[in-house]
């Protein structure tokens, strides 16, 4: 489903060049629950950003659903992300002035769906992630775990085939982190959605059905469980 072929990414920091990825190759199948792990600076977020079509590689190729995203123009990437990818962020990145419902419905509003469909799908996904009755609360009135649930609902509501999560539990305590991982796992199994998440948390790694460890911009190990 996702093919990453000899991808290189070099960042320019002042006069210094940083090789974030030094020729990474991967094949990811549909429905995988995959973790990209490694120490800080190993290149896991860069790889996630490249698969998520929000960064530009310097060399190599990435194809998702047989589409070469590396060759897409900016607008095409935006459209591709809108239709095919869901994102979960470490700091949730919810819009503070919108309610939980509105934060989730926002994604569907980009797809030009009818109001009824937006409402039905949003309410259904909020129920699924355990936020029934909290639709009208703003992020400020929700706990960290609840906010991350809203973010998961936001990522899932458009039924994307791939969800990318950058350190989704890093801002949560271990119990809440576990709850979130279980929720993600459940959604992965129920909807057969491919989950790719970066982490350096041992507990998160244990949940993954495939663990890719990066070190200095290269794959150190790739273990399927």
């Amino acid at each position: 489903m996702i093919t990453v072929k000899d991808v290189k990414r070099i960042y320019q920091t002042g006069e210094t060049e940083v090789n974030a990825l030094k020729g990474v190759s991967l094949n990811i199948e549909k429905g995988e629950f995959m973790s990209i792990a490694g120490p800080s600076g190993s290149g896991k977020t860069t790889l996630l950003n490249l698969i998520g079509c929000i960064d530009q590689m310097d060399e190599g190729d990435i194809s998702i659903k047989n589409e070469h995203v590396s060759k897409m123009k900016k607008k095409e990437k935006t459209n591709f992300r809108r239709k095919n990818l869901g994102f979960i962020f470490q700091t949730y990145n919810l819009i503070p002035v919108l309610t939980a419902y509105e934060n989730v419905a926002f994604v569907l509003s980009l797809l030009n769906l009818s109001e009824k469909e937006v409402k039905d799908r949003t309410m259904a996904i909020l129920k699924e992630v355990g936020l029934e009755g909290m639709e009208n609360r703003r992020p400020g009135k929700l706990s960290g775990g609840q906010q991350q649930r809203v973010a998961i609902a936001r990522a899932l509501v458009k039924n994307p085939e791939i969800i990318l999560a950058d350190e989704p539990t890093a801002n949560l305590d271990s119990d809440t982190g576990k709850e979130i991982l279980e929720l993600m796992k459940r959604m992965n199994e129920k909807h057969n959605t491919t989950f790719i998440f970066s982490t350096h948390d041992k507990m998160v790694m244990d949940y993954a059905s495939r663990l890719v460890i990066l070190h200095d911009g290269q794959i150190q190990s790739d273990e399927k469980r």
Binding site: T78, R82, N93, I95
Partner: peptide
């Protein structure tokens, strides 16, 4: 800016 990044990631066009 971060919110802007989130919106763009989720596929909101620059025009919107």
């Amino acid at each position: 800016i971060r919110e802007l990044g989130m919106m763009r990631s989720l596929g909101m066009s620059d025009k919107k």
